[in-house]
Write a protein that binds this DNA or RNA. Sequence first.
DNA 1: CCTTCTAAGTTTAGTGCTAAAGTCTTCGAG
DNA 2: CTCGAAGACTTTAGCACTAAACTTAGAAGG
Lengths: 185, 185
Amino acid sequence: MSESTEEPGPSEPSLDEQIAAYQREFRDLDPQVEQVVSALGRLNRRMNVAYGRQVAALGISNAEWEVLKTLVLSGSPYRLGPGELAKRLGLTPAAMTHRIDRMAGEGLVTRDRDENNRVRVIVELTDEGRTKWLEAMRMASDFEEDLLQDLSGDERGVLGELLVRLLRRVEHAQPDAGGRLTDLD
Amino acid sequence: MSESTEEPGPSEPSLDEQIAAYQREFRDLDPQVEQVVSALGRLNRRMNVAYGRQVAALGISNAEWEVLKTLVLSGSPYRLGPGELAKRLGLTPAAMTHRIDRMAGEGLVTRDRDENNRVRVIVELTDEGRTKWLEAMRMASDFEEDLLQDLSGDERGVLGELLVRLLRRVEHAQPDAGGRLTDLD
DNA sequence: CCTTCTAAGTTTAGTGCTAAAGTCTTCGAG
DNA sequence: CTCGAAGACTTTAGCACTAAACTTAGAAGG
């Protein structure tokens, strides 16, 4: 994934300054909507930087961690084809080929032809890969717990529920030619 | 930015399935925390894909749009140095040099030496760049309004406030060697 | 069988990024 | 002055990604 290790600079405007600046330049802006959207964007950027630092301490990249997570999520015996992995990670098959090359070289996964259908390739997590995943997962869940530390149990529930509702809206709707969201169902 | 245009595949597990799978593999996992974090991550991915499609319709990339936004946010006369832009966008100066090359070639910005200090370079938004920004901004704010359409005014306020609290936690704290968050102030 | 089609991966060419080395102005100390 | 050091980009080398062309195994039809 190779994200820049640098934080956004100290001269970056605060969230409130940013919203105020947008309102000066663009009248038709709902500050409440902008607050939600801008906070979401910034939060995610910071979190990705933080995850990147953590897994780097284990000697793997954020990109490799994504692959480990996907394989573990698929459940035992932790096998998926390159095409399926690519789809789930939002990559092209070509990128997947190279990523698997590297990870196989590092011993995190194996790559073998399917005996029953020799066009297919099977990528399988090694024990070492599974161990790396577990170590990364421990660090990540500590980090996430700390991140939410200031929120009460109720607040966490409310936040989760609201986010899930937004997610449903994006997952079940796609912008049409004009860019508006329209239901697909 | 050149993000993959593909959505994560249809075979990707649902959020609930994903959380259940993690719990099977990793006992020490707070499902409430995981729901918040996973929803945040997915939401952001989908939103970036959507933004990318929208600005592509205007003939610019997500990366170029980020630069336009940063210049507009700096306020009239919409000028910043490459180094400052790089810091705010979380890029290396080298990447900024190339991005400015492209955008200057497309007429979105100009690049000139500062007369008072000939080491410095000034990147300034052109009228065409400002127009592109405005067009993109209109599409983005329509999209964002649609995204939040299912939430009441109160719910939007609560969501914004909770996200801002999380953001404060990441912005004012950085993971130490072990990866825990510790206050910097 | 033998041809054609399709699906799954891989390879190639080109883009955009990072890290590190290089260039050119300006500033400060002798 | 002038030499050295610092600051602000730019350049170079190398990596990871996308798009598109290519390869090969299995499926479908005559």
